[in-house]
């Protein structure tokens, strides 16, 4: 298939960027979106042009690096899918595809499609951990955990921190990410000890990073490649209220 691509090019964080149009030919529908980018970059290198900078790592949908805003959607049109797992068969021959980086004050553009997501790392370092040494792997059921809690914690822990929630949110809010991390630990007995300080610190850091406020549009849940539920946001709202009342 032949495609017209309009891709955001930006030299660095300081200079303004713009959309540049490229043509790619004979793209296989079995390629992933990133493989199509590899083909394009090969072309650019052959022509002696600067290849397009984009983030990627595992290419199997679990690292959360491949941040691309494709045709107005975080990670493109497929539901519950990262960009690396998006296949070209989701597009038609002759399509024009617009690719932009995540846009948020808290995620400054480093170059082209690469953004700096270290704001998420700082949120995690502010409380997204437990401070006890858990030692070696324990026997199963050593500490009894209700099945429901284990399932909810596991579902929240599926968050790969890709930032699609921030990218899709009209307010660039990080509530889905932060609430998934808060929930994952608050639901388990090991995380219960630091339950209050964790949510207080993580929300404080989230606000300081310059993310917007949640208006419950649930665009985050719809665009999340791991389909993290907004129930986590409600849980964080509860946790935060509870921690402030204590």
């Amino acid at each position: 298939m032949n495609l017209t691509l309009k891709i955001w090019r930006q030299k660095n964080a300081k200079e303004a960027g713009n959309l540049v149009t490229y043509q790619v030919k004979d793209i296989s529908e079995d390629m992933s979106f990133l493989e199509m980018f590899d083909v394009l970059n090969e072309q650019l290198v052959h022509k002696g042009e600067e290849p397009i900078a984009f983030d990627h790592d595992c290419r199997e949908g679990i690292c959360g690096m491949c941040s691309m805003f494709i045709n107005g959607r975080a990670h493109g049109p497929a539901q519950g899918t990262t960009t690396c797992q998006l296949h070209m068969r989701k597009f038609k021959d002759g399509d024009t595809i617009v690719v932009e980086p995540w846009r948020a004050r808290a995620f400054p553009v480093v170059k082209d499609l690469i953004v700096d997501r270290s704001a998420f790392d700082r949120v995690i370092s502010s409380g997204g951990f437990i401070s006890v040494n858990t030692g070696n792997a324990k026997d199963a059921n050593n500490i009894p955990v209700p099945k429901q809690d284990a399932d909810n914690a596991f579902a929240a822990a599926a968050c790969i921190g890709c930032g699609a929630c921030v990218a899709a949110c009209k307010n660039s809010s990080a509530m889905l990410f932060v609430s998934a991390k808060v929930s994952q630990l608050a639901l388990l007995p090991q995380g219960a000890i630091e339950r209050e300080s964790r949510v207080l610190n993580m929300v404080k850091q989230m606000d300081e990073e310059g993310f917007g406020n949640c208006t419950n549009t649930y665009a985050c849940e719809a665009e999340c490649p791991k389909e993290i539920s907004v129930e986590n946001i409600a849980r964080m709202n509860r946790e935060y209220l509870r921690a402030n009342l204590k």
């Binding site: 955001w8 045709n71 049109p77 932009e100 899709a168 009209k170 719809a222």
Partner: peptide, 10 residues
């Protein structure tokens, strides 16, 4: 965003 298909998610 130059193109934001917000109606697809909310």
């Amino acid at each position: 965003y130059t193109l934001n298909a917000a109606s697809a998610n909310s």
